[in-house]
Simulated scan of single mutants.
Amino acid sequence: MHVLALVTQKGGSGKSTLAVALAVAAMRDGERVALIEADVQGTVSRWQERRDNPYPRVERVAEPADIDAVLARLAAEGIWLAIIDTAATNNVLALRAIATADLCLIPARPSPADIEAAIPTLLAIRRQKRRFAFVLNQTPPRGVRLSEAATSLNALGVLALPFIGQRNDHQDALGTGLAVTEYARGGKAAEEVHALWSWVAKKLAEEAFGHDQAAIKKAS
């Protein structure tokens, strides 16, 4: 089972919206997906309550040990991907989510405050030697600020593509219990999310290949 964690200390970065969108995009590819909510705000749980479709399922956790227990149960049930949505604080739950993740995504809006706020999260990820990528989220269509933010994040590490634009479809979808790829299937927001999921899926496949190669080398 793959584990994807969305982490950053900055509130309003769009972690929950991205978690939901990526989960449903993965489901559309035929994958078995679950969301783990490690955020007391409960944005993902409330989204699930508004949703007619029971999938992706949502598991809430309150303690670091809960994450390990839920992940073990999901793996035993054949879930292919678990996506962990974390709170906007560098708390013990977020740190445990980082430790269990195959890939950490750090959403950041194209502003100096967001990029500065991402640094402590990046340091925590590097201390635990986890793979990561930044996601530029809620971006304007173009401009110097966007270009400068992309340059800054590229200098700090890997930057996922494409950028996710600031579009009303994301919030409108969340309010109706849908992902943006369900709410406006032919829209630009849905197109960006599908492309981002393709990028993430490729990175997860690379991670799995690396583990397989390491196992083969160890066995030989």
Rank of each mutant, 00 (worst) to 15 (best):
L156E: 13
T176G: 09
A184M: 05
L161K: 15
A179T: 04
A160R: 09
V180F: 00
F163H: 09
A184G: 00
H170G: 00
T151F: 13
L196D: 03
K188F: 05
A201I: 13
A179P: 04
G157I: 03
H170E: 01
W199D: 12
S152I: 08
A150W: 14
G177F: 01
V193M: 14
A190S: 15
W199Q: 05
T181L: 05
G175Q: 08
G165R: 09
L174G: 01
W199R: 03
G186L: 04
E192N: 11
D169R: 07
G165L: 08
G175H: 07
F163K: 08
K202S: 10
V200M: 12
G186Y: 01
P162H: 04
L161T: 15
L178T: 00
W197P: 11
K202I: 06
L159V: 15
P162C: 10
L156H: 08
G157P: 13
L159K: 14
G157T: 06
G186T: 02
A160C: 10
N168Q: 06
D172W: 11
S152K: 07
D172V: 15
G177N: 04
T181Y: 05
H170N: 02
A173N: 03
R185N: 02
W199F: 15
A195N: 06
A150Y: 14
Q166G: 00
S152W: 10
A149T: 11
D169I: 03
G187M: 06
D169K: 08
N154Q: 12
K188H: 07
V180K: 00
L174A: 09
W197G: 09
A190P: 09
G165H: 06
A160N: 12
S152P: 02
Q171D: 02
L174H: 08
L153G: 13
G186V: 00
W199Y: 15
V200P: 15
A189N: 02
T181S: 10
S152G: 06
H170M: 03
V180L: 01
G187T: 01
G165C: 02
A150I: 05
E182M: 03
A160V: 01
L156I: 12
H170T: 02
D172S: 04
V180D: 00
W197V: 01
A173G: 07
P162N: 02
A201C: 12
T181N: 08
R185L: 04
D169E: 12
R167H: 03
L178K: 04
H170C: 01
A201G: 11
R167G: 03
A184D: 13
A173P: 08
E148R: 05
H170F: 12
F163E: 03
G165T: 07
G177E: 06
F163L: 07
Q166Y: 05
G177S: 07
K188S: 12
G157D: 08
A179I: 01
G165E: 01
H170S: 01
A201V: 13
E182S: 07
Q166D: 14
F163S: 09
G175Y: 10
G165D: 01
R185T: 10
S198L: 14
W199A: 08
